[in-house]
Amino acid sequence: MSSLGDRAAALPRLAPLGPGAVAPGSGQHATKLSRSIYSGWVAEVLRESIVDGSLAAGTPLVEMRVAEELAVSRGPVRSALHVLEGEGLVRTQPNGRTTVVGFGADDVQDLLRVRYELEATGIRWGVAQGASIAPLEIAFAAVAAEGATTPRLVELDVAFHRAMLAFSGSRFLMEAWQAIAPVIQTVITVGNQRLAAADPAKHMTRIVASHRPLLEAIGRGAAEEACALLRDQFGLTGSLFDGGRDHQGRGAGDEQ
């Protein structure tokens, strides 16, 4: 599990929390807040390690070992493992031990199929209702303004796609998408890292060029055209995880 320390260093969202430490404040409320904050960070570290294959299927996740590796107490680790089990990334065995389920190419394709159905439905319903695209335009402008491949760019990309679900006007469609959003964001993060490493000069241009025609199609009310563009976008994501296709030569329209 030596990779977790390196992964944590690459995700400096929070200062490490030593055993017994709590977030600023005092009392039970501060302790609960501390556990909540740091469990999210621990889940992010573990989730990315599982998605990119650093933690392979069958790897045991022992609370004490993970806590020591990440310099946190066991409480946030326990909470993070519960979250990851709900996402289908880890499994608790009958003997109480937690192991990694894994995340292979088939899992990526499964996730992308579900994601496509949800987001395409959001597009179709929003267009049918004549919903305003102003929130989508704002979200796209934020992506374009970022100007470089950064961790924030992934968050802005996810925010754009979240806006497509909100465009539908359906609370429960949004809730369904939100349930898998953390895994979606991690897949985009890992995919962006691989694309940026392969072609850093064109990566930002590729992202903007893939989202602009999608927004324009939605703005024209061309729902099926937009859905076809969305399907094309997800094609590259799958290729980045299947190990059997050359993604470096794909066009600018193939983005996540």
Rank of each mutant, 00 (worst) to 15 (best):
S79M: 10
P16Y: 00
F241L: 12
L240G: 08
C227H: 05
G243V: 12
G27V: 04
S79P: 06
T150L: 09
T150G: 09
Q178F: 07
S239V: 09
R91T: 14
L214Q: 10
L111I: 06
A43D: 03
F172Y: 13
A128H: 07
A163V: 01
R124T: 11
L14N: 06
V90D: 09
L61S: 00
G53N: 03
E255I: 14
S239Y: 12
E225G: 10
A15W: 02
Q233I: 02
R78C: 03
V183E: 03
H161R: 03
S239F: 13
V158I: 14
G251R: 11
V77W: 02
D107S: 12
T59H: 06
L153F: 03
M204I: 08
S239M: 15
A197I: 07
A139W: 00
G126H: 00
L46E: 01
I37Y: 01
R220T: 09
K32N: 13
V127W: 02
S34P: 07
A131Q: 13
L89N: 02
N192H: 13
G104Q: 07
G40Q: 12
V158S: 13
L17P: 01
D254H: 15
T149R: 11
R13G: 15
D246R: 12
R124Y: 00
M64D: 05
Q248P: 08
D107R: 13
L70A: 00
E224N: 14
T98G: 00
V100C: 09
L14W: 06
N192S: 08
V51N: 00
L118D: 01
F160D: 01
R206E: 04
R124W: 06
G130A: 04
A23E: 14
V72F: 06
I184W: 12
C227K: 05
T99E: 09
H29K: 15
I218A: 01
E146G: 00
Y116S: 07
Q109K: 14
L195H: 07
E68V: 13
N95E: 10
D110W: 02
V62Q: 03
L84I: 11
A30D: 03
I37C: 00
L70R: 01
A23T: 14
A159E: 09
R113N: 15
R47V: 08
L17Y: 04
S26Q: 13
V208A: 05
A196R: 06
G191I: 08
S54I: 05
G86D: 06
S239R: 13
R74L: 08
P12E: 05
Q129R: 15
D106W: 02
D6I: 13
L33C: 11
L55S: 01
